[in-house]
């Protein structure tokens, strides 16, 4: 399993990405968020605390998910990016597109 899903008491869906987010599993993540949106969920935290690396298709999936959530009137936050992943977001300038928190706890507190 590469994704772990849970729900905060306040109604925020938390998806933890384990291992990597790459071309092989990005569709699964998009599907998970799409299904949650269909069920009425609007607040999401994607936590990367257990993520080793992300490829460009994984980043593309995050861009796509962010758009879908936003279009549905929801909000997506990212958390737990280590130093390497943070640098990836900075060099691609995707850090300007996302709300990024140090931890899932911090991301949840901001909702």
């Amino acid at each position: 399993m590469t994704f772990e899903s849970s729900r905060d008491p306040s109604g925020v869906t938390i998806l933890t990405v384990e291992g990597q987010l790459i071309v092989a599993n990005r569709q699964e993540l998009k599907q998970l968020v799409g299904d949650a949106l269909d069920q009425g969920d609007r607040k999401f935290v994607l936590d990367f605390d257990k993520t080793a690396y992300i490829d460009s298709s994984g980043l593309g999936a995050l861009v796509s998910i962010n758009k879908k959530v936003r279009e549905a009137g929801g909000e997506l936050r990212l958390s737990g990016l280590n130093e390497d992943l943070s640098s990836l977001f900075e060099l691609t300038k995707l850090d300007t597109l996302f709300v990024i928190a140090d931890s899932a706890t911090e991301a949840l507190a901001g909702f």
């Binding site: 490829d55 460009s56 298709s57 060099l91 691609t92």
Partner: peptide
């Protein structure tokens, strides 16, 4: 360049850029 403003929300086009960096 995927960091251009009009490319930033594109779902693809970052691969070679990332490899080069």
């Amino acid at each position: 360049d995927p960091t251009d403003d009009d490319m930033l929300e594109s779902e693809c086009g970052r691969g070679i850029f990332m490899i080069r960096r």
